[in-house]
């Protein structure tokens, strides 16, 4: 498993899975603490109609039009959520739920009606991505990692998601203090003159970039799971924000690696012939990690301990 075949068939999908998971889990930490976890969910759903519309307009599946389409769809969703909330006078969670399921459903219909047979764009792909197909055919073994010709044949999803993961890590590190302070105490942050609304918008935009980049490679199931499960499990491990973010990265990485390996080899170990969806298995593993943290996490009993008013 660790030889040339591994480098050719498993290394790149695992790396892409890990990087996509990290890119989503990082902003997920702050979204959860702000009780905005649903936003990650909403974004990953509205990405679909955006991408389909971009394809219908441009006729290609190039990265740039897809990104723009997804961004426009996210913007439409934000406006719709606000409009429904104000005109319908219902709570934000319900407005979000209505908006993103409707837009996602619209995306599915749009996808079925349009001729996308020539390109890799269908409902199954939107949900589960095509992680298993992101293989590195030019690789002949570990030595290919230093071979420029072979590296040129890497699936383009890998450098793209690597860039996004690096960018999000850098932004989180650079703006750690404002992110932490505005998530904990918005009023105090404003009294210091911090641009609280801009920071909130930047966080949601960063989550959107992560969702769009990850969606392309791994599908929306992993995106939704990674925004919520690793940070939520990490919160149950520690009472420090820094350690929470660290744990969430560990959980995201473990989920991606373990999920991919289990999907590929698990059924065979159990005597079945075919492997199962890597995206589905990765999301399942991260859900199981959350379940274990809920039962055994050292900080699971914290709620209600304090005499908070």
């Amino acid at each position: 498993m660790m030889g040339a075949e591994f480098v050719q068939l498993s290394l790149t999908p695992i790396l892409i899975g890990v990087l996509a998971s990290i890119a989503c889990a990082l902003p997920g930490n702050f979204l959860i603490l702000r009780r905005q976890a649903l936003i990650g969910d909403a974004i990953s759903h509205v990405v679909l109609p955006g991408i389909v519309a971009a394809f219908l307009v441009t006729g290609t599946v190039a990265a740039m039009p897809m990104m723009i389409g997804a961004a426009v769809a996210a913007l439409v969703a934000v406006v719709l959520i606000e409009a429904i909330r104000r005109l319908g006078r219902i709570e934000p969670g319900a407005a979000m739920g209505v908006t993103f399921t409707s837009l996602f459903a619209g995306g599915v219909l749009l996808l079925e009606q349009s001729d996308t047979s020539a390109v890799h764009l269908d409902v199954e792909h939107a949900l589960m991505g095509n992680l298993e197909s992101l293989i590195w055919l030019d690789a002949t073994g570990w030595s290919s990692l230093t071979d420029a010709a072979a590296l040129a044949g890497l699936p383009p999803e890998l450098p793209r998601i690597a860039l996004v993961a690096a960018l999000i890590s850098l932004l989180t590190w650079l703006f750690w203090r404002p992110l932490k302070l505005t998530s904990f105490d918005e009023g105090f942050a404003r009294s210091l003159g911090m641009p609280v609304s801009i920071i909130g918008l930047a966080l949601v935009s960063t989550a959107a970039i992560a969702a769009v980049a990850a969606f392309d490679a791994v599908g929306s199931i992993i995106v939704i799971a990674m925004f919520i499960c690793p940070p939520a499990a990490a919160r149950l491990m520690t009472n420090s924000l820094g350690a929470q973010v660290g744990w969430s990265l560990v959980f995201a990485t473990v989920s991606a690696v373990l999920g991919y390996v289990l999907a590929g080899y698990g059924p065979i170990w159990l005597g079945f012939s075919a492997s199962v969806s890597a995206a589905g298995m990765i999301a399942t593993v991260t859900g199981l990690i959350l379940a274990v943290a809920c039962i055994a996490g050292p900080m699971r009993a914290r709620v209600g301990q304090g005499a908070t008013g």
Partner: peptide, 23 residues
């Protein structure tokens, strides 16, 4: 220096007393 109402923040936030003071 502004001290908001205590009820305006989520005290379940993963942070310690000294960390809040450092803010």
């Amino acid at each position: 220096a502004y001290v908001p109402q205590r009820a305006s923040v989520d005290w379940d936030f993963p942070t310690t007393a000294i960390d809040v003071v450092l803010m």
